[in-house]
Simulated scan of single mutants.
Amino acid sequence: MIRQPSRHCTVELQALPARIGQVRHVISAQLRYWRLDPLIDPAALGLTELLANVHRHARPSKRCTVQLCSLVDQLTIAVHDHDPRLPQLRAADTWETCGRGLALIAALSESWGVRPDGTGKVVWFTLPALPPALQEPPTVPPRWTRAPLEHTWTAAGPRTWIRGAGVG
């Protein structure tokens, strides 16, 4: 089956710490607009990791492009930078303070990968998405089927009764 992109968003930026936060807000707003609210947190976390890698490792510049592509059942987030060196998944030692970014991407995503792309590389990951009509409806707390309980204190101790029932 051939799947055509149903929605697409592209943001170009310099991967500096202040810009990373701004792009997270933009991406979160876009996902809300697409009614993919349940994907905001994992998408923002994965995107933050990819942009932090660009900020830390990409040479000669920190310029990159973030692309979101929402298909019927999948959201793909990709970051293209101009550094041709491909990142590799590795196991960080317990004492290391970095080196877990791609492992985090692998854990939170349905799939992920890296590919050379002309002037650099693209690192991407996917999250499962359902259109709003197929998502589980939010659970609404039931309305009171009876009158609420009232609590009072008397000299003999606490008393509880159903409001309006006249029993205690």
Results as ranks from 00 to 15, higher is better:
residue 2 I to E: 12
residue 5 P to L: 11
residue 5 P to R: 07
residue 5 P to I: 12
residue 8 H to F: 15
residue 9 C to T: 03
residue 10 T to R: 14
residue 11 V to L: 09
residue 11 V to Q: 01
residue 12 E to M: 10
residue 12 E to D: 14
residue 12 E to C: 11
residue 13 L to H: 06
residue 15 A to E: 06
residue 17 P to I: 07
residue 18 A to R: 09
residue 18 A to Q: 13
residue 18 A to C: 01
residue 20 I to G: 01
residue 20 I to Y: 02
residue 22 Q to V: 13
residue 23 V to E: 01
residue 24 R to C: 12
residue 24 R to Q: 15
residue 24 R to M: 08
residue 26 V to N: 00
residue 26 V to F: 02
residue 29 A to N: 13
residue 30 Q to H: 06
residue 30 Q to W: 08
residue 30 Q to D: 02
residue 31 L to H: 02
residue 32 R to V: 05
residue 36 L to D: 12
residue 39 L to M: 04
residue 42 P to D: 11
residue 43 A to Y: 00
residue 44 A to Y: 04
residue 45 L to N: 06
residue 45 L to V: 15
residue 46 G to Q: 06
residue 47 L to D: 07
residue 49 E to I: 01
residue 50 L to W: 07
residue 51 L to H: 04
residue 51 L to P: 01
residue 53 N to H: 08
residue 53 N to Y: 09
residue 54 V to T: 10
residue 54 V to G: 05
residue 56 R to D: 13
residue 56 R to N: 06
residue 57 H to P: 07
residue 57 H to Q: 11
residue 62 K to A: 13
residue 63 R to W: 04
residue 63 R to S: 12
residue 64 C to F: 03
residue 64 C to D: 05
residue 65 T to G: 03
residue 65 T to K: 14
residue 72 V to P: 01
residue 73 D to M: 02
residue 73 D to A: 12
residue 73 D to Q: 11
residue 75 L to R: 08
residue 75 L to C: 11
residue 75 L to I: 12
residue 75 L to T: 10
residue 78 A to L: 01
residue 78 A to M: 06
residue 82 H to A: 10
residue 83 D to H: 09
residue 85 R to P: 00
residue 86 L to K: 08
residue 87 P to S: 04
residue 90 R to K: 13
residue 90 R to A: 14
residue 90 R to D: 04
residue 91 A to N: 05
residue 92 A to F: 00
residue 92 A to C: 02
residue 94 T to H: 13
residue 95 W to N: 09
residue 97 T to F: 05
residue 98 C to Y: 05
residue 99 G to P: 05
residue 100 R to W: 05
residue 101 G to N: 09
residue 102 L to G: 07
residue 102 L to C: 05
residue 103 A to K: 03
residue 104 L to F: 01
residue 104 L to V: 11
residue 105 I to A: 01
residue 105 I to N: 00
residue 106 A to G: 00
residue 107 A to Q: 14
residue 107 A to G: 06
residue 108 L to H: 03
residue 108 L to F: 05
residue 109 S to V: 07
residue 109 S to P: 05
residue 110 E to V: 05
residue 110 E to S: 14
residue 110 E to N: 10
residue 111 S to C: 08
residue 111 S to Y: 02
residue 116 P to I: 01
residue 116 P to R: 13
residue 117 D to S: 14
residue 118 G to I: 01
residue 119 T to E: 11
residue 122 V to A: 07
residue 123 V to W: 07
residue 123 V to T: 13
residue 124 W to R: 06
residue 125 F to E: 03
residue 127 L to C: 08
residue 128 P to Y: 00
residue 129 A to S: 15
residue 129 A to T: 10
residue 131 P to T: 10
residue 132 P to E: 02
residue 134 L to P: 00
residue 134 L to W: 11
residue 136 E to A: 15
residue 139 T to S: 14
residue 141 P to V: 08
residue 142 P to M: 06
residue 142 P to S: 12
residue 144 W to A: 12
residue 144 W to N: 12
residue 145 T to D: 13
residue 145 T to A: 14
residue 146 R to Y: 10
residue 147 A to E: 15
residue 148 P to N: 10
residue 148 P to V: 04
residue 149 L to Q: 12
residue 150 E to N: 01
residue 155 A to H: 10
residue 156 A to P: 00
residue 159 R to N: 00
residue 159 R to M: 09
residue 160 T to R: 14
residue 161 W to T: 09
residue 161 W to S: 12
residue 167 V to S: 11
